[in-house]
Nucleic acid binder design. Structure first.
Lengths: 163, 163
DNA sequence: ATTTCTGCAAACCCTTTGCAATGGT
DNA sequence: ACCATTGCAAAGGGTTTGCAGAAAT
């Protein structure tokens, strides 16, 4: 349909077609909701389903949280997004179009930092060679404490809260 | 009280007193429930709150799940137990009296294996030196796939179920 | 006697599901 | 037209909380 528009789209129109093709090859359909969820994940970087819903709703009203869950499951199956657990609450979703990295979560101050693949490489190699295990770096979240942190954990329990 | 019993306890009686002292020094009390929860965690090794409850109930009837949660929180604060997340469901609790180790979870076959501290040492050192982050190995769970696994993840999504 | 702790029931958060209506293709 | 997808509402795990009665010190 519309052959005159082929190279008109510049960027977002072609991504739109790529996504549609990806979905169609598996028997799925492209819907506004699916597009918006993917865009929201890409925009937010570290987003919970609820946060994604809020962003989606800014662009289209009436979208339901269950659609977000169903869509995230689908996008993850298509390897367009991944999720990890940065706390005991809701998981966070990430776009696979951004460079892979792991996360380090400080239980004292709550800060989440990104850990580049280089820092994990040797560990991953060890697991593979010695334990026959292939680590998924995008899912990796390590918990502990920043060394220069206001130091909790001295009788009081570590603060996981959003302070 | 009872100075004649000092070295009588052999093992479990003295641990009982140690636990009581530990609790009392913080203003807490030793109750049968607390003792039973701790014993259950030590006995089960990798236990969810629900599994712990089942074991506790074999020895004392009427114990409630909320007591288990409250007790686990307390025991964790006292560094007698730790927890980690081996899946998207309930966390698993471990006794700190067993040697520290991390866990590797295969998303294809669901198997959970223990990763000894030696395998994590260098990674932990890297995080500390280069990123100022002190990793808690007991909380560490890595996700991925066994290399000699019936191989899922080829269109089908990874099986996280209890097969 | 005092104060913590427990069981119970209800509430809560996050996620999943059944179903009729909507909407891609 | 066909059938995937959605919104809604209800249900489902797992966890937390308020409170009155039970138990530890």
């Amino acid at each position: 349909m519309g052959e005159a528009r082929e190279r008109r789209g510049g960027d977002s129109a072609s991504r739109h077609e790529e996504l549609r093709a990806e979905l169609r090859s598996r028997g799925y359909r492209l819907t506004p909701q699916r597009q918006l969820v993917l865009e929201a994940v890409e925009e937010l970087q570290h987003a919970t389903p609820e946060q994604i819903l809020q962003v989606v709703r800014r662009k289209a009203r009436g979208v339901n949280i269950s659609t977000v869950y169903r869509t995230l499951e689908l996008l993850e199956d298509l390897d367009l997004v991944t999720h990890t657990h940065l706390g005991d609450r809701a998981p966070t979703y990430h776009s696979t179009s951004t460079p892979a990295h792991a996360h380090a979560v400080c239980r004292a101050c709550g800060r989440v930092s990104e850990v580049p693949p280089e820092a994990v490489e040797r560990f991953a190699a060890t697991l593979l060679e010695r334990y026959g295990f292939r680590l998924d770096i995008r899912h990796l979240a390590v918990f502990g404490e920043c060394t220069e942190c206001p130091q909790a954990r001295s009788g009081e329990q570590a603060v996981t809260s959003k302070a």
